[in-house]
């Protein structure tokens, strides 16, 4: 059977934004609507805190910001792509087009966290990066990150 790591309800494609703050704000709002984050401002503060420790722009137009906080009720990933590349101070100095915002609870069972870790790992795969660039809709995106389970 197939496991989908990416929840279609937590995806925003072709966002019209011009800064890192705006993307995070948009995705954090999604989390808040779905009850995954109980306090949006505190969560954003945690994400910004992490960002100030070092960039999460991992190169090739991908960023993987994350916030660990007690206001996160369950581990999740929200995904955005931007209409125009935005500056992220990335490791390769290139602007970012794909954002994977992780919500990490203070306490969680390992399984959910491992899924997020797996997703992060897959983003290092050249194949996945190529496919990501061709994504036009949510279904394409889901497909990249679904994994087969026997």
């Amino acid at each position: 059977m197939t496991i989908k790591i990416v929840d279609p309800l937590l995806v925003r494609l072709n966002l019209n934004v011009s800064s890192r703050e705006e993307v995070i704000e948009e995705l954090a709002a999604l989390y808040y609507e779905k009850g995954i984050v109980t306090n949006k401002q505190k969560y954003i503060a945690a994400v910004n805190q992490r960002e100030s420790d070092g960039t999460t722009g991992i190169g090739d137009g991908i960023a993987i910001p994350h916030g660990k906080s007690s206001v996160v009720s369950k581990a999740a990933v929200a995904v955005a792509s931007t209409a125009n590349p935005i500056d992220w101070n990335a490791l390769d100095d290139k602007p970012v087009k794909y954002i994977f915002l992780l919500a990490v609870p203070e306490k969680s069972d390992n399984t959910h966290l491992e899924l997020l870790s797996e997703l992060a790992g897959t983003l290092m795969d050249d194949d996945v990066r190529e496919k990501l660039k061709k994504v036009t809709n949510v279904l394409d995106l889901e497909k990249i990150f679904e994994s087969e389970v026997k």
Partner: peptide
């Protein structure tokens, strides 16, 4: 955080 960069 121990979730993302470790594995990347």
């Amino acid at each position: 955080t121990g979730v993302a960069h470790t594995y990347m």
